[in-house]
C-alpha cells in the first residue's frame, strides 16, 4: 500500500458516498446517469467475485463490500425509490456500444484465459468507459448540479492517483500491470475536459454549464 493508492481509494469512496448522499438528501437523481451507475455496479460485481475465494486484507475486503453495497444502493435509488426523478430522456447513451467491445477485448487481451481473470479484465476495461453515459448526459443537458461535479471530480481523481500508484509500485516493487495501466490512462483521459471545466468554473464558484 502507498499514499497514492490509499488517497485514490479514499477519493473513490468519497465519490461513491457523495453521490449516494446527494440522491438520498435531495430525494432526486436529476442529472445522474442511471446507465453509468449500472455499469459501475457491474464493474464491482465482476471484479470482486474473489471476495469469497481469496482474502487479501481486512481493508481490501471491507472496501469491496462497501463499494458493492453503495453501488447497488445507488442503482436502487435511481431505478426504484426515486424513479420519478430519473431523467431517462437525457440518459440515452447506447451502453451496448461499450459492452460489446469490452467483452471482446477482455476475451482477446487478458493475462490468462481463465474465467475469473477474464471477468477481472472485463471489469477493468468496463470501468475505463463506464462514466461515458454520465458525461454524455451532461453534454446533452448542457449543465450539471455542483454536487454532481464534485462526485465526478473525486471519481476522476481516484484513477489519476492510481496512475501515480502504479508508477510508485513499478519503481519500488517492480509491479507492473499493462492492462490496468492502459485502461487507467484511457479512464483518466476521458475526464480531462471535465477537469478543465471543473477547475476553471466550479472552483471559481460558477455553475458548470457546457456551451450548449
Amino acid at each position: 500500500m502507498n499514499i497514492f493508492r490509499l488517497t485514490g481509494d479514499l477519493s473513490h469512496l468519497a465519490a461513491i458516498i457523495i453521490l449516494l448522499l446527494k440522491i438520498w438528501k435531495t430525494r432526486s437523481c436529476a442529472g445522474i446517469s442511471g446507465k453509468s451507475q449500472i455499469l459501475f455496479a457491474l464493474v464491482f460485481t465482476t471484479r470482486y467475485l474473489d471476495l469469497f475465494s481469496s482474502f487479501i486484507s481486512l481493508y481490501n475486503t471491507v472496501m469491496k463490500v462497501i463499494y458493492i453495497m453503495c453501488a447497488y444502493a445507488t442503482v436502487y435509488l435511481i431505478y426504484g425509490k426515486f424513479k420519478a426523478t430519473y431523467d431517462g430522456n437525457h440518459d440515452t447513451f447506447r451502453v451496448e456500444f461499450l459492452l460489446i467491445p469490452v467483452v471482446l477485448l477482455a476475451v482477446l487481451i487478458n493475462h490468462a484465459f481463465a474465467p475469473m481473470e477474464i471477468l477481472w479484465t472485463f471489469s477493468i476495461y468496463l470501468e475505463s468507459v463506464a462514466i461515458l453515459p454520465q458525461l454524455f448526459m451532461i453534454s446533452k443537458t448542457g449543465e450539471a448540479e455542483t454536487i454532481t461535479t464534485h462526485y465526478l471530480f473525486f471519481l476522476g481523481l481516484y484513477r489519476t492517483l492510481y496512475l501515480f500508484n502504479w508508477i510508485w509500485r513499478f519503481y519500488f516493487e517492480g509491479f507492473f500491470d499493462l492492462i490496468a495501466v492502459v485502461a487507467g490512462l484511457v479512464q483518466t483521459i476521458l475526464y480531462c475536459d471535465f477537469f478543465y471545466l471543473y477547475i476553471t468554473k466550479v472552483l471559481k464558484g460558477k455553475k458548470l454549464s457546457l456551451p450548449a
Binding site: R5, D9, H12, R47, D50, S54, I56, N60, M63, K64, Y67, H111, A112, A114, M116, E117, W120, Y162, N165, A180
Partner: peptide
C-alpha cells in the same frame, strides 16, 4: 502466466 493472477488492488 499464473492461471489465476492475484489482484490485490481494489
Amino acid at each position: 502466466h499464473a492461471l489465476t493472477m492475484s489482484h490485490d488492488e481494489l
